[in-house]
Write a protein that binds this DNA or RNA. Structure first.
Length: 901
RNA sequence: GGGCGGAUAGCUCAGCUGGCAGAGCAUCGGCCUUACAAGCCGGAGGUCACAGGUUCGAGCCCUGUUCCGCCUACCA
């Protein structure tokens, strides 16, 4: 048995380090597929949303991990076989950027190293820094199975990626083509639609004159990007626009370029906007691209993939950057008198979600996934096979899937899964296969010629989309996959509902014929105190690691849990975390108290709970009753993802009930001479504390484990593997609840009188209670617990029974029909009591007025359910009784005052 | 433009299927009462955004309005 005392203050750093290591060394959370496949145990599995290897733990991760951990630890208690898969994602663009920056410091570029050397270099970086975020996950206390850890670029997952690519290609769901895509000049790669973020920017709207070639006038077009005019191929107007009806079909002369381009009509054009004439630049605008296709217009790119004007621009502009070219174009147009207007114009501009530079639509050869068929299945699976919680997100999910466009999956970078496609240098044959031809030592199957692999790699999200089954060993049919797929729930923020969740749904359904998860729980975003998104540039980031260092992991976890109400963002401030550290301290000290009051020999109390419950005192009956209710509350709240309710129920129970009332009431028995009573109360104290530790453990794993490990009579020190506390329905007692409420009312009323009349706390008062009108059993509650009333209300003498009356000069109150008297003569100037009673009477009046109004309202008695009517009438009677008694007591007091005067 | 969410105590937020408006923090008053001053006891503080409607009864359901967030979209 370990030393059954605890240090005075809780030291989170030491405790967390110790138990964290213990869990990992002992592989406490290692999942066992055989327990499911052969043992018949129910599986429960979660795959972690893999953070970027380049990432550092932020509050969003902290919340995400906390909620998943609560679920996993709770499900273990429920007897499930739990697998929580940790891992990271290779974050193609982000990681490549990091290493490129590193190279830059050495004065090198990636091209200086070449593809192979560069990738080696990234792996080196990954080896050195890639574990950072994983170690931070450890500090959160996450009960993941570290033996199951995966990385999107590791061998198994790479195999899965190739398998998926090849199969989709074979099914015609992946194709290659020349299309306009979102292009980031800085990252030098294509991006998917949803990797482009739109941000409002202040810009200008330029109006440019395009003279009609026949000299019959001009069209004025409006544009925010004048430099693109060099690539214009047409001007479009609305077919029903009378202003331009005669111009349709004519040619205009493109200024600065000098060539003639047609005026076309298309209903896409908004007559209201600008001049109603739209210049068409198919190579540099998504919409223009679409128009050009319907009208069979040529595509002329004038900007290259680095953002510089290319050889298709007039020589005067070639080689200029976009912005330099814009300046020159504006200057030249002005000189020619062709610039009709410049106006301020706010519009939204696409930015790269990784580097925030402006996205340039760019025509290039790319690979795409044809998503429509996949999206259809993903849509139909909700809510039948996969439930989105809270359900309000279903709409967002549907909306996106309904409007989805083909997914550009090729990226012009090096770090990632290289596309498994080879082109024959001799005959141009395209080969897509899982095996590397080089490994197979084969050439072109058609002509035997030399094969060259695609340079591009796949979008990181392509591999992330496979995460729920690739991490379980797919495409092999592993035991893990059999036991744990589909996963039980995916816990994530709504910000990657599209990027990731929808795509996992598509891939999971397509390749495993089953949805990847039963539930998707969408949690809040963590924001700062003002409700702003935390970001490094704003400087409003609260660093979870710093908070852990200062307040401990449990405080942080509890705070996040307490604020994780469904469907609402969390506004977090350091003060809240600090506040909940007080709660951790409270728990710690209540455990210290309990341990100080256990048998001296370090063993458990010598009485069973069953025996302790025989003729148990009020405090014991009541707290055991409440403990049973708590088990129900915590269980249902967890099963329904009501995380804030878990926190609230536990907080209230531990602090306001267990500590404030039970412990105080137990002291009498614990310190008393009656050995039987002492042992019984010790047993109850230990039972409640230890079961509470189990209930609290999923939220606060460290402090509960530390306390658990020193509790007397605990055979298994591994709290994480304890079953959920057994139910003892026979201990539920509404009578105990009622008795306790009465007891608390009496103590509370007495305390209020004392404090309100500013009576010295050290001054002992006497107490007289008239129980003539009390509920059955109330007298016994008082008689049996008079010693506790003395102690808690700081009372000296007590006289309680039907018909008792105190002196007129008493502080008075009415509790559930019983009259309370606190004699004040010689204690305090009791004039203040008259005023206090006025206030109390006022409160009663207010309630009475409202209640009488309700009861007398026409139709209430007839229409309301009988039990409600009865309850309301009973309430009215109680209030009327209290008011009458209190008013009479006040009169007595006044007469006493008059006599004195 | 479309969609979603929010408005409840000074602050941050709970309030499940309609039935006495709650908590934490802050605040005020009093306490070093032998687990805890990171604590204990007590008090004060609300026209539940606004206007209608349904109902015996609305913070909750319905309609409209205002003000805030957020997501999404191809008005150049």
């Amino acid at each position: 048995m370990s030393d059954a005392t605890l240090p005075k203050g809780y030291e989170p750093a030491d405790v967390e380090a110790r138990w964290g290591k213990h869990w990992e060394d002992n592989q406490t959370f290692r999942a066992d597929p055989q327990a499911v496949l052969e043992g018949g145990r129910e599986p429960y599995s979660i795959v972690i949303p893999p953070p970027n290897v380049t990432g550092a733990l932020h509050m969003g991760h902290a919340l995400n991990l906390t909620l998943q951990d609560i679920l996993c630890r709770f499900m273990r208690q429920q007897g499930k076989s739990v697998l929580w898969v940790p891992g990271t994602d290779h974050a193609g663009i982000a990681t490549q950027n990091v290493v490129e920056r590193q190279l830059k410091k050495e004065g090198k570029k990636r091209d200086d190293l070449g593809r192979e050397k560069f990738i080696e270099r990234v792996w080196e970086w990954k080896k050195e820094y890639g574990d950072r975020i994983l170690n931070q996950i450890r500090r959160m206390g996450a009960s993941v199975d570290w033996t199951a850890e995966r990385f999107t670029l590791d061998e198994g997952l790479s195999k899965a990626v190739r398998e998926v690519f090849v199969r989709l290609y074979g099914e015609g769901l992946i194709y290659k083509g020349n299309y306009i895509v979102n292009w980031c000049n800085r990252c030098h790669t294509a991006l998917a639609d949803d990797e482009v973020e739109h941000a409002p920017r202040k810009g200008k709207l330029y109006q440019i004159r395009y003279p009609l070639a026949d000299g019959s006038g001009e069209l004025v077009v409006a544009t925010t990007r004048p430099e693109t005019m060099l690539g214009d191929v047409a001007v479009a107007v609305h077919p029903e626009d009378p202003r331009y009806a005669q111009a349709v079909g004519k040619m205009v002369t493109l200024p600065l370029v000098g060539k003639e381009i047609p005026v076309i009509a298309d209903a896409y054009v908004d007559m209201e906007f600008g001049t109603g004439a739209l210049k068409i630049t198919p190579a540099h605008d998504m919409n223009d691209w679409a128009l050009a296709r319907t009208h069979n217009l040529p595509v002329i790119a004038v900007i290259d993939d680095k953002g510089l004007m290319n050889e298709n621009a007039p020589s005067a502009y070639q080689g200029l950057s976009k912005s330099a070219c814009r300046d020159k174009v504006v200057e030249d147009l002005t000189a020619l008198g062709l610039l009709a207007d410049i106006a301020e114009h706010d519009h939204s501009v696409g930015e790269c979600y990784r580097c925030k530079s402006v996205i340039e639509p760019h025509v290039s050869e790319q690979w795409f996934v044809k998503v429509a068929p996949l999206a259809k299945a993903a849509r139909e699976a909700v809510p039948g096979q996969t439930r989105i919680v809270p359900a309000q997100w279903e709409k967002t999910y549907f909306e996106w899937l309904d409007n989805i466009r083909d997914w550009c999956i090729s990226r012009q970078i090096w770090w990632g899964h290289r596309i498994p496609a080879w082109t024959c240098q001799a005959c141009g044959e395209l080969i897509v296969q899982t095996e590397d031809p080089a490994d197979l030592k084969t050439g072109c199957p058609k002509c035997g010629g030399e094969l060259a692999q695609e340079d591009d790699v796949l979008d990181t999200w392509f591999s992330s989309a496979l995460w729920p089954f690739s991490t379980l060993g797919w495409p092999e049919d592993t035991d893990k996959l059999k036991a744990f797929y589909p996963t039980s729930v995916l816990v994530t923020g709504f910000d990657i509902l599209f990027f990731w969740v929808a795509r996992m749904m598509m891939m999971g359904i397509h390749f495993e014929k089953q949805v990847p998860f039963r539930d998707v729980y969408i949690h809040a975003l963590v924001r700062d105190e003002q409700g702003k998104k935390m970001s490094k540039s704003t400087g409003n980031v609260i660093d979870p690691l710093e908070m852990i260092a200062k307040y401990g992991t449990d405080s942080l976890r509890f705070t996040l849990t307490a604020f994780a109400a469904m469907g609402r963002d969390i506004k977090l401030s350091e003060k809240r975390i600090e506040g909940y550290r007080h709660f951790v301290n409270k728990i710690w000290n209540s455990a210290r108290f309990a341990l100080m009051n256990m048998p001296e020999d370090g063993g458990a109390p010598g009485v069973s709970l069953e025996d302790a419950c025989v003729s148990a005192p009020l405090a014991n009956r009541w707290i055991l009753h409440r403990l049973e209710e708590l088990k129900d509350e915590v269980e249902s709240a967890t099963l329904e993802y009501r995380f804030n309710d878990i926190a609230q129920s536990l907080y209230r129970f531990i602090w306001n009930e267990f500590c404030d009332w039970f412990v105080e009431m137990a002291k009498g028995d614990l310190y008393g001479e009656d050995a039987a009573a002492r042992d019984a109360t010790r047993r109850v104290l230990l039972t409640v504390l230890s079961e509470t530790m189990v209930l609290l453990h999923p939220v606060m794993p460290f402090v509960t484990q530390e306390i658990w490990s020193v509790l007397p009579g605990v055979a298994d020190k591994e709290l994480a593997l304890q079953p959920y506390p057994e139910r003892r329905p026979q201990l539920k007692s509404s009578q105990a609840a009622r008795d306790m409420a009465f007891f608390q009312g009496v103590v509370g009323a007495t305390r209020t009188i004392r404090t309100e009349l500013t009576i010295d706390p050290a001054k002992k008062l006497s107490l007289i209670i008239d129980t003539a009108d009390a509920a059955p059993g109330a007298q016994a509650v008082l008689t049996d617990n008079v010693h506790l009333i003395r102690q808690l209300a700081r009372i000296d003498g007590a006289d309680m029974g039907p018909g008792r009356t105190g002196p007129r000069a008493s502080g008075t109150a009415v509790v559930e029909g019983s009259r309370i008297f606190v004699p004040l003569k010689g204690v305090v100037d009791f004039g203040a009591e008259v005023a206090r009673l006025d206030k109390e009477l006022g409160k009663l009046d207010k309630q009475l007025t409202a209640l009488r109004g309700k009861l007398s309202a026409p139709g209430f008695a007839n229409n309301a359910p009988a039990d409600i009517v009865a309850a309301e009438n009973e309430k009215l009677a109680g209030l009327e009784d209290a008011k009458a008694k209190l008013a009479a007591l006040q009169e007595r007091l006044k007469s006493a005052l008059d006599e004195e005067a």
